[in-house]
Design a protein around this nucleic acid. Structure first.
Length: 829
RNA sequence: GCACCCGUAGCUUAGUGGUAGAGCAUUCGGUUUACAUCCGAAGGGUCGUCCGUUCGAGUCGGACCGGGUGCACCA
């Protein structure tokens, strides 16, 4: 009986079924190769706050290729899936969702809000798991972890406590990047600087000391000292005017005082090296509470930190009569008032400078002095002797960690050598609360303070505030309530109250490789995973992991932190290789964004063209570190290839089954002759075998070097052109049964005698010999077809798992020697 | 300002010392017999410019031109 399969590849009929078979048979588990060398990849846990986009599809494809390849090489391959709570990002998504539903977070307490976000995240998490399955991810679901799992949280807290006891965690009052929309501090990485044009105001400060007469003789119009500023609304917070110590123009003024316009408060004129005499007027106002440089200058000169802008980005009572106004409106009104009083000397409307903005909402970052928790990255641990940044740098320099592509090593060095301490506390609800505790008696007052502030903002219908600092420190920053007793540890003394700030989510995901594995091992947790008892020594077995594969855009956010925290906690590198992929762009090289309307939904196109087509489109023509250009046309092209595979297989199936070969006998097909010099192998046979052999070694070389695109393109080209266009075409003649020459068969017979002529020693014109030769050629052709097809399918499997498995299963029905799944078959050598 | 990357066919891009490759697009031809989600063929590149190293350079070095990115920052 001839085996005939449908005329085209219909992914929707197979994908789901195949995936659940793989999963239920345990093929995703490293235990499928119990004796194999351990190989592990920890999945970058997607934020559980939405659905997967093409960027996720990229990591799924690449990591799945690596995992499937390792597995087929007989390694105990573990790809450990996970999800991240996403901290700040998730809270933003959730806030938007609330807004859409016409709800407000006000009136909700912290616990209620947290619970809602928990449900929201779990729902998204389970949706994303389904999507990962749809994309063919061969990860071990029994080992899945979430960054808020009890055992993970415990590990994260323990690391914090260890850092604290080692002197590498500290709390400090200093200017932070404050987003007035989201009401939280941000790390330096979360601030994006943008160039913009703003007016530069030249403001006159009246010189109040009598000695100015002397000065007057030198400069015209000298009752005033003029400064240049972009932020006139902060003058209420001025505590000095600074000039350069080397600037002769102002030498006489140092030590005198000037009056702040509008308030008439006197402030000193000081000399500080930070001032560039060539900029503006050579004199600058110092506002320590609202500018990081001024804060430093203030420290040098013991100046008061006078805060005039609150957490909501409004002027406070110190700026009467402008109190309550938002920064922009305040600036407008202050400038008006200055104009009226004639103290605005001039305005340069075309001043270009860079402004820090919240990377998420684009709101201008307001530097505010606030108490936050920091990790010291350049300091030596007093117990461990470790230095976070330096040790990380060393690991890369000594080659313990390699980057693909290498160019990232330079970028990594540059960043790490300039790194500053990391602010890890966030004033949001969604995250892991710091294991920091305060004694109750000290914070009562503060609780009421903050409640009042919240009440106020609620009344004024301020949309974007979630104040979470119910305890610990009030949100006004400066003048934070004195908390005399602080305890950092997992188990607090009785009656103490926990800090409400939560960790920057990168602090927990920065521990992900060892945390996710240790949590499996139960090394740090009472919670033993009953699901996978065989994994009790996962950390021992799989750490350090083989590869960390992720996007280069989170090299600093995540990869650098994993290296630092991994080395700190485990004294080993968390991974030996870092493979960084690029950003996904459309065919015009544009970033994909909803507003541009050029977003391709990976699940949508997978539905339409098949998952395999999408995966292949994501590796074809791409390389590590470079952007990934994809278009629907490209996906369509790859769909054509999967269909080509299906149809070539259809041809092979039709020809190796049925006819004069019974299905049972096909099981014996084996290519014995490795040198391809059999007397019954035609030139076409030998040619394709020869090329195929070269392809096999090249593909291995490419995969070992993370050149996935190279491997895929080589296989694509070989399969389509060498195998289909050349060999299958030739095989049509070779498979034809020997028969009398007819008009119809002239072509075939001519071809045959052509081949036969090339095998002159075997061809003596005798019909019997000819028939014998024909049979042998035909038999060998079938063997060659099966060998080439099955081995090429195996090599293509990591890239396009579904169509290769579907065909494999069909092939198995006529050629029973194949392993029961291509997934667990042996890599062709 | 400091640093990094890129410039190859109309478009998107592989290729890192040995006679320029692919996909898409274009043009022409074919195709009842695995596949029109197909087959065959063609056109199209002085590999940004210049100089150098080398028997030999898209590939290594230098300068320049053009495009992009990261980090830091001046009121």
């Amino acid at each position: 009986m001839k085996k005939i399969i449908s005329k085209s590849w219909e992914p929707e009929k197979y994908e789901k079924k195949l995936y659940s078979t793989w999963e239920s048979k345990g093929y995703f588990k490293p235990e499928i190769n119990p004796e194999g060398e351990p190989y592990s990849i920890i999945m970058p846990p997607p934020n559980a706050n939405g659905s997967l986009h093409l960027g996720h599809a990229v990591f799924v494809t690449l990591e799945d290729i690596m995992t499937r390849y390792a597995r087929m090489q007989g390694k105990a391959a573990l790809w450990l899936p996970g999800a991240d709570h996403g901290g700040f990002e998730t809270q933003i998504v959730f806030e938007k969702k609330l807004e859409k539903e016409g709800k407000s977070r006000f009136g909700m307490d912290r616990n209620e809000l947290y619970r809602m976000m928990w449900d929201f995240s779990l729902e998204n998490k389970s949706g994303m798991e389904d999507q990962l399955r749809k994309l063919g991810a061969s990860c071990d679901w029994d080992r899945e972890k979430f960054t808020l799992d009890e055992d993970i949280v415990k590990i994260v807290n323990e690391t914090f406590v260890k850092l604290y006891n080692d002197g590498l965690v500290y709390q400090d009052l200093r200017p932070v990047n404050w987003c007035t929309k989201h009401q939280t501090s941000l790390s330096d990485l979360e601030v994006k600087y943008e160039e913009q044009t703003d007016p530069l105001y030249f403001v006159k400060y009246q010189i109040s000391n009598i000695k100015y007469q002397k000065y007057k003789s030198k400069i015209k119009n000298s009752e005033y000292l003029t400064i240049a500023t972009t932020r006139p609304e902060t003058i209420f917070g001025d505590t000095a005017i600074a000039v350069s110590p080397n600037d002769k123009r102002f030498a006489e003024l140092i030590g005198l005082s000037v009056k702040i316009p509008l308030t008439e408060i006197e402030i000193p004129v000081i000399a500080d090296k930070m001032v560039d005499p060539k900029f503006g007027t050579g004199a600058v106002k110092i506002t320590p509470a609202h500018d990081p440089n001024d804060f430093e200058a203030g420290k040098r000169h013991n100046l008061e930190i006078k805060e005039v802008i609150d957490q909501y980005g409004r002027l406070n009572e110190k700026a009467e009569p402008f109190a309550g106004l938002k920064i922009f409106e305040a600036r407008r009104q202050v400038v008006e008032a200055m104009k009226e009083k004639g103290i605005l000397e001039k305005v340069d409307e075309n001043y270009i400078h860079t402004v820090g903005k919240c990377y998420k909402c684009g709101a201008v970052i307001e530097p505010r002095v606030s108490k936050q928790w920091y990790i010291a990255v350049n300091k030596k641990g007093k117990k461990s002797g470790k230095i976070l940044a330096k040790d990380a740098l060393e690991a890369v320099k000594t080659g313990k960690i390699k980057f693909v592509s290498e160019k990232f090593e330079k970028i990594f060095y540059h960043w790490l050598t300039n790194i500053r301490d990391w602010n890890i506390s966030r004033q949001i609800v969604w995250g892991i609360r710091l294991p920091v505790w305060y004694r109750k008696s000290n914070i009562k007052d503060q609780i009421s303070n903050v409640k009042n502030a919240d009440q106020k903002s609620q009344n004024e219908n301020t949309k974007n505030a979630i104040s979470t600092r119910e305890v610990g420190f009030d949100s006004s920053g400066v003048g934070d309530g004195e908390v005399s007793e602080v305890y950092v540890g997992i188990n607090p003394p009785d009656g103490w109250i926990q800090e409400t700030d939560v960790f920057d989510a990168w602090f927990s995901s920065g521990q992900w490789p060892f945390a996710a594995l240790k949590a499996q091992s139960g090394l740090s947790s009472k919670v033993q995973k009953s699901k996978s008892p065989e994994s009790s020594d996962d950390y021992q077995k799989f750490y350090p992991t083989a590869v960390m594969e992720t996007g280069w855009d989170i090299l600093f956010f995540w990869v650098a932190r994993m290296i630092m925290l991994g080395l700190y906690e485990t004294s080993q590198v968390p991974f030996k290789t870092v493979y960084l992929h690029g950003l996904v762009r459309d065919k015009d090289r544009q970033k994909m964004s909803k507003s541009k309307g050029n977003v391709i939904d990976p699940l949508g196109v997978a539905e339409q063209y098949g998952t395999d087509a999408v995966r292949l489109a994501l590796v074809f023509g791409t390389s590590a570190g470079n952007d990934i250009v994809i278009s629907e046309e490209k996906i369509r092209g790859m769909r054509n290839f999967t269909n080509k595979i299906w149809n070539a297989s259809r041809f092979v199936l039709i020809n190796i089954s049925g006819g004069d070969i019974a299905a049972g006998e096909v099981g014996d097909i084996r290519i014995q002759n490795t040198e391809y010099s059999s007397e019954y192998l035609t030139e076409a046979d030998q040619q394709v075998l020869k090329v195929h052999k070269v392809i096999k070694s090249k593909v291995i070389k490419y995969l070992e070097n993370y050149q996935f695109s190279q491997a895929a393109e080589l296989l694509y080209d070989f399969f389509w052109h060498d195998f289909c266009d050349s060999y299958i075409e030739a095989s049509k003649q070779q498979l034809a049964p020997p028969r009398e020459s007819t008009k119809k068969d002239t072509k075939v017979q001519n071809y045959k005698s052509e081949i036969a002529t090339s095998q002159t020693t075997r061809h003596d014109g005798n019909n019997e010999t000819m028939r014998q030769w024909d049979n042998e050629v035909s038999e060998n052709t079938k063997k060659v077809l099966i060998k080439i097809l099955s081995e090429t399918l195996a090599m293509l499997h990591p890239f396009i798992p579904f169509v290769t498995e579907a065909v494999w299963q069909e092939l198995r029905e006529v050629y029973s020697e194949l392993k029961k799944s291509i997934m667990i078959s042996t890599w062709p050598k």
